[in-house]
Simulated assay, not measured.
Amino acid sequence: MLSAYGHSWVYGTGARQHSEGFVELATRELGIRLDNQAESGSLSTETARLVVARPPRPADVFVLMTGFNDARLHGANPDGRRRYAEALEIILHALHKAEPQAVLLAIEQPYVEDYSGHPPYDKASDAIVDEYNAILRTAVEHFPPGARTVPVKGWDATTMLADDNVHPNDRGHSVLADCLVDAITRSAR
């Protein structure tokens, strides 16, 4: 089973149909069950509260994608980055505790074309997204070999975003699914 946590991208927002979201696509391709615990609009702190209130069930693979809404809301604010790092520690520990032998994949956030829409979630930039991805990589490095970050190779913000310029369209979800399938397949070797 694959258990997924995070924001609206993990939930499947932006795809024409929810069933075409990237974790749905990946689990269908791999023939494994999905437990999607993602919540649209969630911050990392909300995901941390979720895994404390409802501890994760054991799974073969955990997928986490969080931090985009944090970056968009807090921008360069150091307190926002600190809260993100603290939330990641809580989330990663909860996932590891649920199944210490599981593969734990944290997907790095790709860029969008324009961060200025959707106030107050309008404070990010490519550089700030890079900072949040660096925090994610640092947090994941403290976990066993089964934990790693997954960069989204082949991402093109000009063609892979829905009209809202915040969520991936079907093409974006397809690229995310390919990256996830590749990461899971490599982890199984």
Score class of each variant (00 low, 15 high):
183 A>V: 08
126 D>T: 03
139 A>W: 11
88 L>H: 07
171 R>M: 02
125 S>K: 04
76 A>G: 13
48 A>D: 07
48 A>G: 04
102 A>D: 02
28 R>K: 11
97 K>I: 03
166 V>I: 08
149 T>G: 09
148 R>Q: 15
156 D>E: 12
66 T>E: 14
169 N>Q: 07
87 A>F: 01
161 L>P: 03
99 E>M: 11
135 I>T: 15
149 T>H: 10
133 N>L: 11
50 L>F: 12
12 G>R: 14
30 L>I: 05
119 P>W: 05
181 V>G: 03
185 T>C: 06
10 V>T: 15
36 N>S: 09
114 D>Y: 06
31 G>Q: 08
8 S>P: 01
71 A>P: 03
57 R>T: 05
97 K>Y: 09
81 R>K: 13
3 S>W: 06
153 K>Q: 12
139 A>R: 09
8 S>Q: 09
29 E>W: 01
121 Y>C: 08
68 F>M: 13
155 W>N: 01
11 Y>L: 12
151 P>Q: 06
90 I>P: 01
167 H>A: 09
60 D>P: 00
1 M>Y: 10
20 E>V: 00
137 R>A: 15
57 R>I: 01
186 R>C: 02
55 P>E: 02
189 R>C: 10
66 T>A: 15
17 Q>T: 13
70 D>A: 11
157 A>I: 03
21 G>S: 03
180 L>Y: 10
60 D>M: 05
146 G>V: 02
64 L>H: 07
65 M>P: 00
163 D>L: 07
70 D>K: 08
156 D>L: 06
39 E>I: 15
147 A>V: 14
47 T>L: 05
181 V>P: 01
25 L>H: 00
130 D>A: 14
106 A>M: 09
113 E>W: 04
57 R>A: 13
88 L>P: 00
69 N>F: 08
88 L>M: 09
156 D>P: 00
52 V>E: 15
38 A>M: 04
118 H>S: 14
140 V>P: 01
37 Q>A: 05
155 W>D: 00
163 D>T: 11
158 T>K: 13
72 R>I: 03
133 N>C: 12
42 S>I: 02
13 T>Y: 13
33 R>G: 15
143 F>T: 07
90 I>D: 04
80 G>S: 07
145 P>Q: 14
113 E>R: 15
56 P>Y: 13
74 H>E: 08
151 P>S: 11
6 G>L: 10
65 M>S: 15
22 F>S: 00
167 H>F: 04
165 N>W: 02
155 W>E: 01
52 V>R: 15
113 E>V: 07
137 R>I: 08
15 A>D: 06
119 P>S: 14
22 F>D: 08
71 A>V: 00
88 L>N: 08
172 G>V: 03
12 G>L: 14
157 A>V: 01
96 H>F: 10
42 S>M: 00
57 R>F: 01
22 F>H: 08
150 V>M: 12
181 V>W: 05
173 H>D: 03
88 L>W: 04
137 R>Y: 06
176 L>S: 04
170 D>Q: 00
119 P>K: 14
4 A>Q: 09
13 T>S: 14
16 R>L: 06
